[in-house]
């Protein structure tokens, strides 16, 4: 079973994403900010991270930058999942090491397509 870490400060988004990902047979962990997400990654790298951009404590961009610097941090596939839907943010995310980018709002088809794109489904 593949592991997905959902990082989003919105409990509603985490719940919606969890439902979709569990249907796709993922085992789920959740974090409401980048700092908590990093500590989860330190104890075990997920296969994929669904990552919001704007969060309190540590945002998604900083989380990604730090994750890519720690041992094994290059392994998880990173899917940004955010309302920051402009070319500037998408470009920045990819340059920081994101593998795919989901523009909110999303549905199951989009989520599945993006997971297929990064090769975890």
């Amino acid at each position: 079973m593949k592991h997905c870490l959902i990082v989003d400060d919105s409990a509603v988004i985490r719940k919606v994403a969890r439902r979709i990902l569990e249907e796709l047979a993922f085992e789920i962990a959740e974090a409401e900010n980048g700092e908590l997400a990093l500590s989860i990654c330190h104890s075990g790298m997920p296969d994929v991270v669904l990552l919001d951009w704007n969060m309190p404590v540590m945002d998604g961009y900083e989380f990604l930058t730090r994750l890519r610097q720690i041992p094994g941090g290059d392994k998880p596939k990173i899917l940004f999942c955010t309302t920051e839907n402009d070319i500037g943010h998408i470009t920045r995310a990819l340059q920081a090491g994101a593998d795919e980018y989901i523009m909110k709002p999303f549905d199951k088809d989009i989520m599945t397509a993006k997971l297929q794109e990064v090769g975890v489904v």
């Binding site: 990819l94 989901i102 999303f106």
Partner: peptide
């Protein structure tokens, strides 16, 4: 644009 189109090609 999110159903099947890789983000790199979108950009």
């Amino acid at each position: 644009v999110q159903r099947g189109l890789p983000i790199q090609l979108l950009l």
